[in-house]
């Protein structure tokens, strides 16, 4: 193959017959590299996106877990305090019951006294009728 004088001067023709200063092989490799690089950047970008999403998701989860945790603690505390509240309520009701019991006892005594008066009066009426 004869040496291309152009080639020797460092000039080449490409397929479209345009004059070039770079060897077509190198040029091809370069463009290939460029392609590959682009692909790589794309891939990296994608990866980053995916990872970002993941992180976000995990963060969200963490947050949710945190609130749930707080809720759980709150509920647990509430439960504890409800028991206490019930106790207080029970105490209050007990006090009210004791009060009512006392009132009932008073009414019972009053009833007894009235029954006694009634029996006395009946006795008196009987006696009165008998004597007449």
């Amino acid at each position: 193959m004869a040496k291309d004088p152009l080639a020797e001067a460092g000039f080449y023709f490409d397929e479209l017959n345009k004059l070039r200063v770079l060897e077509p092989e190198v040029s091809q490799k370069t463009s290939e590299l460029k392609e590959e690089c682009k692909e790589f950047v794309d891939k990296i970008g994608q990866f980053q996106k995916i990872v970002g999403g993941l992180i976000e998701m995990v963060d969200e989860l963490a947050k949710e877990a945190e609130t749930e945790k707080m809720k759980a603690i709150g509920a647990r505390n509430l439960l504890k305090s409800v028991a206490k509240q019930r106790e207080a309520q029970q105490q209050q009701l007990q006090a009210l019951i004791a009060e009512k019991k006392m009132q009932l006892e008073r009414y019972r005594i009053e009833y007894e006294a009235l029954s006694k008066v009634e029996s006395e009066q009946n006795e008196f009426i009987d006696q009165f009728i008998l004597q007449k």
Partner: peptide
């Protein structure tokens, strides 16, 4: 009225 607050009644001839 008793000391404990209950009312009692008594009848007199």
């Amino acid at each position: 009225r008793q000391r404990d607050g209950s009312l009692v009644y008594s009848s007199v001839p």
